[in-house]
Design a protein around this nucleic acid. Structure first.
Length: 170
DNA sequence: AAAGAGATGGTCT
DNA sequence: GACCATCTCTTTT
């Protein structure tokens, strides 16, 4: 499941907001930089659940970051959503991120969670459930044939794994 | 333009 | 008690 180019849609109290996924990072259980590396714990439990579920964690005590579980049960594999391009509900995102230029509304894992209203209460949600408040849609946009591949960000080990993928500017 | 530091809290040792 | 899959503001070139 290639996530680049897909739509992330959140249905909240004040309507619906969505964005196109333009940057991701892969994390696996045999990866020293992954939360799942040391085995299942209370926090990373969703990572060891079925694919298509959401894994949200609190980063640096302040920000929420959203992952989509990609492995099967017990695999401990997920993809961090690092950036999205606002598509629907840009006004709502501006309200949630006052004072920020549009370019910086959701161009980081913590920023996109704030802009879209993703928080810890959404941890573990089943994105394949039609009734879920957060879902991933394929609107026909093809994933980039020439994604930018590079080292991951914000980690201190396994820096040699080029598992960061970004949609190029058009 | 780049570099540095503080905020802030759950999780794990 | 240390460590972060971060962000923003302030200070320095």
């Amino acid at each position: 499941m290639d996530l680049l180019g897909k739509l992330l849609v959140i249905s909240g109290d004040d309507g619906r907001v969505s964005g196109r996924i333009i940057e991701t990072e892969a994390y696996t259980a045999d990866d020293p930089a992954s939360h799942s590396f040391k085995g299942p714990t209370k926090r990373n439990e969703p990572m060891f659940g079925p694919a298509g579920h959401l894994y949200v964690y609190l980063s640096y005590g302040i920000h929420c970051c959203a992952n989509i579980v990609t492995g099967g049960i017990g695999d401990g594999q997920a993809v961090l959503i690092r950036a999205i391009e606002p598509v629907v509900g840009i006004d709502a995102m501006r309200e949630r991120r006052p004072g920020r230029p549009d370019r910086q509304l959701a161009d980081g894992p913590g920023k996109l969670s704030a802009a879209l209203g993703i928080d810890l209460s959404m941890n573990g949600l089943d994105l394949t459930d039609p009734a879920a408040s957060i879902r991933v849609f394929d609107d026909g946009t093809r994933p980039p044939s020439d994604p930018i591949v590079g080292p991951r960000v914000g980690i201190s080990t396994a820096l040699d794994r080029p598992w960061r993928f970004r949609t190029p500017e058009r």
